[in-house]
């Protein structure tokens, strides 16, 4: 009995009397159990990874694997922090993701607003180009972009990886839709009649109204850069410049690496990304949800 779109909690007693109510409660309980088990299964791989980070080598070999370390040790963590520039990688990723999110928010805000509120034939053409390129996955044009970075002398540098993450077609689209829905033309006209300049209007009228859309976009862009893999992998070439994803992926291929250290390194990386996600969850969900609303 899966009652989908109707919320039973609103009017529980309308159907069936006490027997029906008991049955409903039982169904809800069953669904709760299913969802809880499923949710735990989804995060179980990550929990076990963190558990492994605190296990001594003997325990890692134990069969079957334990969920909670019997003799927790921080040896793996100190070892991995000593062996690799892990904290540098995290810092690099953080800088890269933040700068990318700023660039994407700024370019999307400007272009989205102009495309929405200054209709002309040129703008229509530009918007068509933005929409058309939105379909093309990054992997398709990654290789020519690599040679552009090479020409600019930006290989193996932060500006080099940023080059691929300065704009987001979807971001421009998102802001444009938001401007159309939330900012009436009359508001802009009124400001103009009051003698406000265009830059003043953008900064003091438009941006404040776009705050929540831009917040969602910022978080979306941040996580996009934070989890970028193929592009930083081909652009970066020395350990000091690696982002965390690239650093870890290459680190795990080393011969001296054992499971404990690998798990420790992974766990150290997971903690900030999960924390960030839990903190910014609302924004993020909003951002992703709006990707599905291409009307």
């Amino acid at each position: 009995m899966i009652d989908v779109a109707d919320d039973t909690a609103v009017e529980p007693a309308t159907t069936g009397g006490p027997v029906g109510r008991a049955k409903r409660r039982l169904t809800d309980l069953a669904i709760d159990v299913v969802l809880t088990v499923f949710g735990l299964l989804m995060v179980l791989p990550l929990i076990m990874l963190v558990a492994n980070a605190f296990k001594a080598p003997q325990e890692l070999l134990a069969w079957p694997p334990t969920l909670i370390p019997t003799k927790p040790t921080t040896e793996n963590i100190t070892a991995v922090l000593g062996d690799t520039p892990l904290l540098t990688w995290i810092f690099n990723s953080f800088t890269f993701a933040t700068l990318s999110a700023i660039a994407i928010s700024a370019t999307s805000a400007i272009a989205g607003y102009l495309l929405a509120k200054f209709p002309s034939r040129t703008m229509n053409v530009l918007f068509a180009i933005v929409l058309a390129t939105a379909i093309v996955p990054f992997e398709v044009y990654m290789i020519p972009l690599y040679f552009q970075a090479q020409q600019l002398g930006l290989l193996n540098s932060l500006p080099g990886i940023l080059l691929g993450y300065l704009v987001m077609s979807f971001g421009i689209f998102l802001v444009r839709q938001n401007v159309i829905h939330t900012i009436p033309d009359e508001l802009l006209e009124a400001a103009r009649i009051d003698g406000a300049g265009e830059l003043w209007i953008f900064w003091h009228v438009v941006l404040p109204l776009l705050r929540s859309a831009l917040g969602a976009l910022f978080v979306l862009a941040f996580f996009q850069a934070w989890t970028a893999f193929a592009w930083p992998l081909i652009v970066l070439s020395t350990a000091q410049n690696y982002t965390i994803e690239v650093g870890l992926a290459l680190f795990q291929t080393g011969f001296t690496v054992d499971l404990g250290r690998l798990s420790a390194a992974s766990a150290i990386v997971l903690v900030p990304s999960v924390t960030l996600f839990v903190l910014l969850r609302r924004n993020f969900v909003e951002g992703v949800a709006s990707t599905g609303l291409k009307e």
Partner: peptide, 13 residues
């Protein structure tokens, strides 16, 4: 959560 955590650590798990 699996959708947002860093890809490489998750793949390692």
């Amino acid at each position: 959560i699996p959708h947002v955590v860093s890809l490489v650590p998750a793949a390692m798990a």
